[in-house]
Amino acid sequence: MTTSAPLRPGEQLASAVCSTRVIVVRAPAEGAPLIACGGTPMVPATGGRPSTAGMTDPRTLLGKRYVDASETLEVLCTSPGVGELSCDGVPMTIKAAKALPASD
């Protein structure tokens, strides 16, 4: 975001350069990290869903959770896009799935 307002869980953000949209799942208690997509800060999402028609090779994948390096920020992708997500200039990674306990 371009302002210094802290992120809140449930907040919806949209890319200014592609069709990527995310929902903030977890945000740090302190500070206001800058989430960007394709190198451009994301903005509050408004209106309907963007068109993904004709999109090839999305970098941001629908339904995947992305985390920052310290895993204090987590977002869920609700619309795929070709831009790469980053937090404060560092690329975000797909959150690893938790292993389920073995059942006998």
Rank of each mutant, 00 (worst) to 15 (best):
R8P: 00
P9H: 01
M92A: 04
T46M: 11
R49Q: 14
A53N: 12
T20V: 10
S15F: 04
T93C: 10
S79A: 12
T56V: 15
P91V: 00
P80D: 06
L7S: 09
P91W: 03
G39L: 07
P33A: 04
L7K: 05
G54Y: 08
R8I: 13
S79L: 00
C77G: 00
A27C: 06
M92G: 00
T60V: 08
S19V: 06
D57G: 12
A29Q: 12
G38Y: 13
C18F: 13
G10S: 10
P9D: 04
T20A: 12
G47K: 07
C87M: 03
L85D: 02
L34S: 08
V43N: 13
A96S: 14
G38T: 09
T46F: 09
V75Q: 08
E11Y: 09
G31D: 06
T78C: 06
T20K: 01
G38E: 14
G31L: 03
V90N: 11
G81H: 08
A36D: 03
G39V: 08
C87L: 03
E84I: 15
R21C: 05
C87S: 14
E74K: 13
P91E: 01
A96D: 13
C18K: 00
C87W: 01
L85T: 02
S15K: 04
V82C: 12
V67K: 07
R49I: 07
K64C: 15
R49N: 10
P9W: 03
T72W: 09
V25W: 05
R59L: 14
S79F: 01
Y66P: 02
G31V: 04
A53H: 09
G89P: 09
R26Q: 15
G48H: 11
R59W: 09
V24Q: 02
T93H: 11
E30M: 13
M55R: 08
G54C: 08
L61V: 15
A14M: 09
L61H: 11
A45E: 10
G31C: 07
A53Y: 06
P91A: 03
P44Y: 03
K64V: 13
P9N: 01
G39D: 03
A27R: 02
A45M: 11
Q12D: 05
A14F: 08
S15E: 11
S70C: 13
E30H: 13
K95F: 10
T60Q: 06
T52L: 02
Q12M: 05
L34G: 08
V67H: 11
T52I: 15
T40L: 10
R26K: 15
A36V: 03
L34M: 14
T52P: 05
R26Y: 11
G47H: 08
P50I: 05
M55S: 04
P6I: 14
G39C: 04
T46G: 12
G31S: 01
V25P: 05
G31E: 06
R8S: 14
K95R: 15
P9S: 08
D57Y: 10
A29W: 02
V90A: 14
P33C: 08
V43H: 13
G47V: 10
D88G: 06
P6S: 15
Y66K: 11
R59K: 15
C77L: 00
V43A: 14
V25Q: 14
C77E: 00
D88S: 12
T20H: 00
T20S: 07
A29E: 14
T56D: 06
V17W: 11
S51W: 12
T20M: 04
